[in-house]
Simulated assay, not measured.
Amino acid sequence: MASSPFASSSVPRHYARGVVGLLAVVAAIAGVALGAPAALALLLVTAVAWRGCPTCWAVGLMQTRERTGCADGDCRAR
């Protein structure tokens, strides 16, 4: 399978990126409610962690799982 800009090197690493993005977006929303100017920076952190949007993250998760599931050459459905 060709390399994808959305996939990660491992599934745990991809989940970690998702958690970082989710925490950053929650903090950004709370920061906007409190009037913190750093909220915009947190949205940038979210975009970088998710490599775009939540859908981009989900597509990357599927691609990462597909790539790691075929690592041993056995790509049958399980």
Score class of each variant (00 low, 15 high):
Ala33Gly: 15
Pro54Cys: 02
Val19Glu: 12
Ser10Ile: 05
Leu61Gly: 05
Gly18Asp: 09
Ser9Glu: 15
Ala28Gly: 03
Val59Phe: 12
Gly60Met: 01
Trp57Gly: 03
Cys56Gln: 11
Arg51Met: 06
Ala30Asn: 01
Trp57Glu: 05
Cys56Trp: 08
Val20Leu: 07
Val26Gln: 07
Ala7Ser: 12
Leu22Cys: 12
Pro54Arg: 03
Val59Ser: 08
Ala47Cys: 09
Leu43Gln: 04
Cys53Tyr: 08
Arg51Phe: 09
Thr64Ala: 03
Glu66Cys: 06
Cys75Pro: 08
Asp74Phe: 05
Ser10Arg: 01
Cys70His: 07
Ala58Gly: 00
Val48Leu: 15
Asp72Cys: 04
Trp57Met: 07
Ala71Ser: 02
Arg67Cys: 10
Thr64Asp: 03
Leu42Asn: 02
Ala16Gly: 03
Pro12Tyr: 07
Ala30Trp: 10
Ala77Asp: 14
Thr64Arg: 13
Gln63Ala: 06
Trp50His: 08
Gln63Trp: 12
Ala36Gln: 12
Ala47Ser: 01
Cys56Arg: 13
Ala36Tyr: 11
Val11Gly: 08
Val19Phe: 10
Ala33Phe: 13
Ala49Asp: 08
Pro37Ser: 09
Gly35Phe: 05
Pro37Met: 10
Ala71Gly: 06
Val48Ile: 04
Pro12Phe: 09
Arg65Asn: 08
Ala41Lys: 03
Ser10Tyr: 07
Leu40His: 02
Thr55Ile: 14
Pro12Gln: 04
Val11Lys: 05
Gly18Ile: 07
Gly35Asn: 11
Ala28Leu: 02
Pro12Ala: 08
Pro54Gln: 03
Ala77Pro: 00
Ala71Ile: 14
Gly69Val: 10
Trp50Val: 01
Arg13Ser: 15
Leu22Met: 11
Gly52Cys: 10
Ala7Lys: 09
Ala16Asn: 13
Ala7Phe: 10
Ser10Leu: 10
Arg76Glu: 11
Leu44Ala: 01
Gly35Val: 12
Pro5Asp: 11
Ala77Ser: 14
Val32Asp: 07
Ser4Asn: 00
Ser3Arg: 12
Thr68Asp: 06
Arg78Trp: 12
Arg13Leu: 14
Arg51Ile: 00
Gly18His: 01
Arg65His: 06
Val59Glu: 13
Thr64Gln: 03
Gly21Phe: 07
Val25Met: 15
Trp50Arg: 00
Gly69Asn: 14
Ala58Thr: 05
Thr55Lys: 15
Cys75Trp: 05
Ala47Pro: 00
Gly73Ser: 08
Thr46Phe: 12
Glu66Arg: 04
Ala77Tyr: 09
Ala77Arg: 14
Leu34Trp: 12
Ala28Trp: 03
Pro12Ile: 14
Ala77Thr: 07
Gly73Ile: 14
Val20Pro: 03
Val32Asn: 07
